[in-house]
């Protein structure tokens, strides 16, 4: 009986703690919107963060995109060959990359790299009182640190996703036509027959939301850092884990909505 009581108490405690954390995150999000639309607008900071996010992730995005496209081409080819539709490898890989794999894998990669970097940078500024120094100067920490990161992330993610899709398609084309000997003309004619611009839009809209979520989560956990280097490590870890979880969970909700309107 006491075991059940203990388990219920622990469950209740965890629910309360997580609701409290969600409340803090919501409050952070509201303060972000409040400060984002107030002057001054630091365009140079937005641009430098945009370069930082892009540079930090570009190589790994290209690498992952190429191999994802190549693996997808192989897998679909051998599956489709059984039912004699192997010429559809091009559009299937392209649509999958455009709608799902492009935005989701790009989101996961950016969460692991740029999201972690955001939490670590802001966290180390927090423990060394640099954020306090900003506040004392009359500069709002959220406006100065979170706003440029979130805005640049919202625009960097769709571009990185488009690059992922393009490189993935190149990989798929290479494997499909050069290794698996699908006729080049058929490959492209099927691609233009089944692939629509709406498929691209779906992925890019998702990428925009993932960019927002990953950076808001990364900056939030940066601002929550306490207790020195250990706290920075913990904050970075949480930023990556929650960033990735949110990409996967929100992918479902966005898919179920976008599939109806596009």
């Amino acid at each position: 009986m006491s075991y059940i009581k203990g388990a219920v108490e622990k469950l209740g405690h965890n629910i309360v703690v997580n609701l409290y954390e969600l409340g803090k995150f919501t409050s952070f999000g509201l303060r972000f919107f409040y400060w984002t639309f107030r002057r001054p607008f630091r365009v140079r900071n937005i641009f430098s963060q945009f370069v930082f996010i892009g540079n930090k992730s570009l190589f790994i995005i290209c690498l992952s995109g190429a191999f994802t496209g190549m693996v997808m081409a192989y897998q679909t080819y051998f599956g489709f060959k059984l039912i004699n539709v192997d010429t559809l490898v091009g559009p299937i890989v392209s649509i999958t990359l455009a709608k799902e794999l492009g935005p989701v894998l790009t989101g996961l990669i950016v969460a692991g790299r740029a999201g972690a970097a955001m939490a670590a940078q802001i966290g180390s500024m927090k423990v060394t009182e640099q954020i306090d120094a900003l506040e004392v100067m009359g500069i709002n920490g959220i406006q100065y640190l979170a706003t440029p990161r979130v805005i640049s992330s919202c625009f960097a993610l769709p571009i990185l996703t488009a690059i992922f899709q393009f490189v993935g398609n190149v990989g798929s084309y290479f494997i499909g036509t050069k290794v698996l000997n699908i006729d080049e003309g058929i490959y492209f004619s099927k691609l233009s027959e089944f692939m629509y611009i709406e498929d691209m839009w779906q992925g890019l809209i998702k990428a925009f939301f993932f960019g927002f979520l990953i950076s808001l989560i990364g900056t939030y956990f940066g601002f929550q850092v306490k207790r020195g280097a250990e706290g920075v490590g913990r904050g970075t870890n949480k930023a990556v884990v929650w960033g990735m979880i949110n990409v996967l969970v929100w992918d479902y909700f966005l898919t179920s909505y976008l599939i109806k309107i596009l």
Partner: peptide
């Protein structure tokens, strides 16, 4: 309050300099 805080200057215990900026840039920042 944000505007008003410009009336204050502050030296922190460990100086709280922005670690990505040089000494010159730290002073230039405000």
């Amino acid at each position: 309050l944000k505007e008003f805080r410009r009336n204050f200057g502050m030296l922190f215990q460990y100086a709280a300099l922005f670690d990505s900026l040089s000494a010159y840039e730290n002073v230039e920042f405000p």
